[in-house]
Amino acid sequence: MNKTELIEALKEIAKPYVQDEAAFQNLTEDTKFIDDLKINSANLVDIVLDVEDKFDILIEDEAMENMLTVKGAMDIITEKIGVK
């Protein structure tokens, strides 16, 4: 999976929780889940769990601290599975 595919996969995961469609359409690595997409903070837990399920990884509490942005999520996944 390359970077573009990874962003697409995260977009698909975030989609059901998004409350700001315009920000979602313009999603980039720098997009913040809560501040930009207006995702409810409790749903951030769902995103963490969805990422774990999708990529078959375990996100430890320390790694989860940085799950506030698309980039943060990408870094965690990359570190766990390795992305080209």
Binding site: Y17, N40, A42, N43, V45, D46, L49, E52, D61, M64
Partner: peptide, 17 residues
């Protein structure tokens, strides 16, 4: 809304928080 938005009975949900 919380009942609608979040399923806290989902596996591992409570353990994360």
């Amino acid at each position: 809304l919380a009942r609608k938005e979040s399923n806290w009975q989902r596996p591992r949900f409570l353990e994360k928080i």
